[in-house]
Amino acid sequence: MLTTSKLTKVVDSQEQDLTILSQVSLTIDEGDTVAVIGASGSGKSTLLSLLAGLDVPSSGEVVLAGNKFHQLDEDQRAQARAQYVGFIFQSFHLLPGLTALENVMLPIELKGGKSPRKDALAILEKVGLSERVTHYPNQLSGGEQQRVAIARAFASEPKILFADEPTGNLDSANGQKIVELLFELNQQFGTTLVLVTHDQELADRCQRQLRLEAGKLVGDSANNSTESLSSELEGHS
């Protein structure tokens, strides 16, 4: 589904170049649920942005569903995103000018879906918001907004879903509900899920955990095991 090879991101800083991500190679299979964990500044969000084609690597390769992101231009990546990718953000990022329904319809329309309205209503019902479809984001609570965001993310039936701290802005009760909903829908749609989180509990619900430290992939563990693969990975590089 998604493979990277020697993925590196370097940014110009005032004094010297700063390596945010260094030589990350990994493969994520279809249907996997993967948590990316690590301390602040370890490169989690950078990795997510490169995997989703929001940014371009300084070197290395990213291939998502056969699309070589490192070779595509902005618009081609956008097209690939519309086709294969869904997003959930910490700060929801709903469009305040659109109603809940319109927000969910947008990715379906961009993908060229045949019945955006019907599909959007169906998924909103799944997240339990069929009563609030005509509300604007500022008329919804934080938990409700994130549910709309989840509906929007699944609406276009993406092959892969990226979630950036999906519970970061919510209290624990709401966060719990959102997590349940996220995994339930994920299972239902068979989507590949890549989520970035600080929350170990959330990470533990994923089949696989990738640990980043100072821009390097230092751990890749499956089924909650803590076996380190870092030496193996470094051996590849």
């Binding site: 618009d75 956008a78 690939a80 519309a82 469009l95």
Partner: peptide
Amino acid sequence: AIYRCLGMKVS
């Protein structure tokens, strides 16, 4: 940024 993220082209 959200439009772009959801796959809208610059144009």
